[in-house]
């Protein structure tokens, strides 16, 4: 197990969270989510090397890719629908439902 890959995955995770929280555009937020997922994929494949006789880590990674694709598809379609009403994809400007 090389710690470098572990650091890399944590870095990816942190970057992903940062992107999700700070970027203005919903599509970029979506990219941030993908970054977090790629951190998870990296982890799964990396840790699988400890157990060469099994491949559940790789299996997991494959399924995460599938999940990421599905999420991206649904997300893009929702963003398009929002854009039709608001003419923007900036979450900060889409706040008609709130406590006030």
């Amino acid at each position: 197990m090389s710690p470098v890959l572990l650091y890399l995955s944590f870095l990816l995770f942190a970057l992903g969270v940062l992107v999700v929280l700070t970027k203005r555009d919903a599509i970029v937020v979506l990219l941030g989510i993908e970054l977090i997922l790629s951190a998870a994929i990296l982890n799964a494949i990396h840790f699988n090397q400890q157990f060469p006789d099994r491949m559940d880590g790789q299996l997991f990674a494959l399924f995460i890719i599938v999940i990421a694709v599905c999420e991206a598809v649904v997300g893009m379609s929702i963003i398009i629908r929002v854009y039709r009403y608001y003419h923007t994809a900036v979450p900060d400007q889409i706040n008609e439902l709130n406590e006030r």
């Binding site: 999700v20 929280l21 700070t22 937020v29 979450p91 900060d92 889409i94 706040n95 008609e96 439902l97 709130n98 406590e99 006030r100």
Partner: peptide
């Protein structure tokens, strides 16, 4: 926290 901004919720 209920500003209506989703990134605020996430934060």
């Amino acid at each position: 926290p209920m500003s209506g901004k989703v990134q605020g919720y996430l934060l």
